[in-house]
Amino acid sequence: MPAGDAAAGDGATPPQSSGHRAWVRLCHWTIVAGFLALAFTGVMILAVHPRLYWGEVGNDLVPALIEFPLSGNSRPADYGPATLFADVPGAPVTATRDYEHDYFFNENGWGRSLHFLAAWVLVATGLAYLLIGASTGHLWRDLLPRLRELSPSALWRDFRNHLKPQGDDSGGGPPYGLLQKLSYSVVVFVALPLMLLTGLTMAPAVTAGYPLLLDLFGGYQSARTIHFFCFVALVLFLLAHVAMVVATGFRRQIRAMTLGN
């Protein structure tokens, strides 16, 4: 945890930490398990078709926005000869994937099912967290930064604070620092909901019922691409989060998030 100006106090003694409540600790570790399962299976699923696109359509026979060297699956050149669907230049084509029996990585059977199971766990825990968080005031009191706190100078000061060696005076739990509040809020209120919505936009049964999702994200493949970049943002958050836990006393912070203070 970053030391200091949690309550925007300058050089004042930081307020005593109240520790993490039991329900916060339970939600935290359930979400950790769900997130790790989702991240792992997400990479497995991406490796089956390691290409990203924009719009509704994307496959091996159309150009990709980004291609990842995640597996040997991205081999558009290894398709059979293309057949035109109409006798005009630039008409859509079809071609046969001939390397399937040769080498094709696909662990989506369990990968997809585990992804969705973990998503259920995360959605249930996330809803419980938001409900308890709203009813106890945890969300507004500890998580959301006040608008008046968000001055460029205060943000810069808190950023510089992170670069200094971290003291022992910061407790495990709220009150949180400014950037800490900001990053937690972005994860809880922006990144995870966006992850859920873009995920649902990839479900044919869901978009049949709610086609608005396709308009919201600009199509099935756009939703998939946004889903990927949200994942990148969440992994960056995870790295920064763990780095701060280590910097402020790994044992103490882990104890605070498991046993309480």
Partner: peptide, 26 residues
Amino acid sequence: HRLLLPEHALAREYDYGDISSVPAIG
């Protein structure tokens, strides 16, 4: 899905100009 999604909602249908290339797999 059976509980929450509207029954027999139609999947989006597109225009002729939206038809794209398509691989044949499996």
